[in-house]
Design a protein around this nucleic acid. Structure first.
Lengths: 117, 117
DNA sequence: TATGTATATTTAATTTTCTTATATATATAA
DNA sequence: TTATATATATAAGAAAATTAAATATACATA
């Protein structure tokens, strides 16, 4: 998946976004959801995702509660108030970044008048 | 600059894009151009940029030629044939990634019917 | 019953990537 | 002569992600 190269730096923001849409989610679910929403393009690997979830919890952005579902352990995460505010900020920053990069990528051939000479 | 967080993984593609628009550019120029095109939002630091340029050269994506301009040394980089092909691939991949992420970020509140209950 | 697949989390070792800092050198304006 | 801009190089360290392995349950199927 080519997307894996570009995902770097955006995982935290994607987690914040998904959790701002759903009251609580667990790690495996977050990874599956991103995979689904991206048409299998983006795969949040567990080795990256879980440590990020712990870090966000330690930063006070997420709260966690363990549950036993079908006899299997699940750890649900929810946004704290701070996490909710951070979600707005980070999502907006990522949107702006995306628009900026898109502007660079899709711009009309800026310099062709110069180097076409 | 918030963009610094998201730039990870995209620098190489931005370099390929700029060099596909202009026959030759030098490191300082690439950094300045990205800064300008992004309205000062994206700053390609030299500590990141120069090693990437060397790596791309060693991978056969770029060719380099040193020049003395105004008695100051400059190292111009150009896309090789391989670099030109890679530029098309990477730019297209980044565009797709961006659309995918934008789809996740801007989607209508998918789950509000669920967690609003 | 054994085997494989899906679900679910944890974490260590390694690698990749970027930041920060420093060094060097010239040109130019104040 | 001091500061700012131009221009490259590179080392040390931090941050982030990959890869891999371990653990455990549920369920379908051969």
């Amino acid at each position: 998946m080519a997307a894996q190269e570009f995902i770097k730096g955006t995982i935290k923001t994607l987690v914040l976004k998904l959790l701002s849409e759903k009251r609580k989610m667990y790690g495996y679910e977050i990874s599956s959801k991103v995979k689904e929403l991206s048409n299998e393009e983006i795969q949040l690997t567990y080795g990256a995702l879980y440590p990020i979830l712990y870090k966000m919890e330690s930063e006070g952005l997420l709260s966690a509660e363990s549950e036993l579902v079908d006899n299997r352990a699940r750890k649900y995460y929810s946004l704290t108030k701070k996490g909710n505010e951070m979600a707005k900020v980070k999502v907006s920053e990522l949107e702006q970044f995306i628009d900026t990069v898109k502007g660079i990528l899709l711009a009309p051939k800026r310099s062709f008048e110069i180097w076409g000479r």
